[in-house]
Amino acid sequence: MRRFALILVPYLWLLALFLVPFVIVFKISLSDLAMAIPPYTPTLDLAEGWAGLVSFFRELDFENYVWLTEDALYWKAYLSSLQIAVISTVLTLLVGYPIAYGMARAPEEWRPMLLMLVILPFWTSFLIRVYAWMGILAKEGVLNQFLLWTGVISEPLVILNTNLAVYIGIVYTYLPFMILPIYASLERMDESLLEAAEDLGCSRLSAFWLVTAPLSKQGVIAGSFLVFIPTIGEFVIPSLLGGSKTLMIGKVLWDEFFANRDWPVASAVAVILLLILIVPIILFQRNQQKQREAEG
């Protein structure tokens, strides 16, 4: 009995506030926009009984999905979200790997402090960390002032409100997610392997490629998924740092809902976004599972 209650409480909570809302999103994505409250049709009227239910289901259709494929804005936004996610994942890896490497090879008594320095930004407000870059990248911002002062450039660079600013913002905010798993896999590594490789005539660089890189592969994969998956649906970074040409699907969904008040289309956008995310999420889960089995 007690066990039953223990399972039931969190189960019902998640059903009611996680699963049911998704069913509603799917249902509304099959409805049509209407000038009413709520702004879609049909609405289910249980008072009409069976006849109401039948006519309700008859009116549902896939029109919004057809609309998504016809209007270039949407599939361009999906593609450009994927592209931005891929590029920024690669950039985060390039920036994060040397940091994780340096941490794992630092003197042992330094490591807890270095680890804390990586985790600290993670506890700091995401919004504030993105906002910090607005003042740096703006036309009269700190970076331009500095570069003009040193004489590297003579005209201020336009960085804010471009895709470049979005990449910088993503790399900056998601960097801890990349560093931590790579650090974990590098720290576990047995360093005598490197000595062995060098004894056997490897140069340091080829020892890195042949020994260290393969051994840190799991960390790289985990870190890349942890950056890639949330970036696709990112909203705050493209809105604050991106420009009018930065298309990301999270922003499209937000605008569709809040600016256009087209709930059915916003719901359809959400459903497709979910379908796109399912593939990397399943790959990630499977990878984690494999790793757990390899360790256990």
Partner: peptide, 28 residues
């Protein structure tokens, strides 16, 4: 399976989707 799926899914769910779906629930 459904239970552990519902535990792990919100960790990777884009916030815009979670927010939208809950809003539609509350309105409903």
């Amino acid at each position: 399976t459904l239970f552990s799926g519902m535990i792990y899914a919100p960790l990777v769910m884009p916030e815009v989707i979670t927010g939208l779906s809950l809003l539609l629930l509350f309105i409903g």
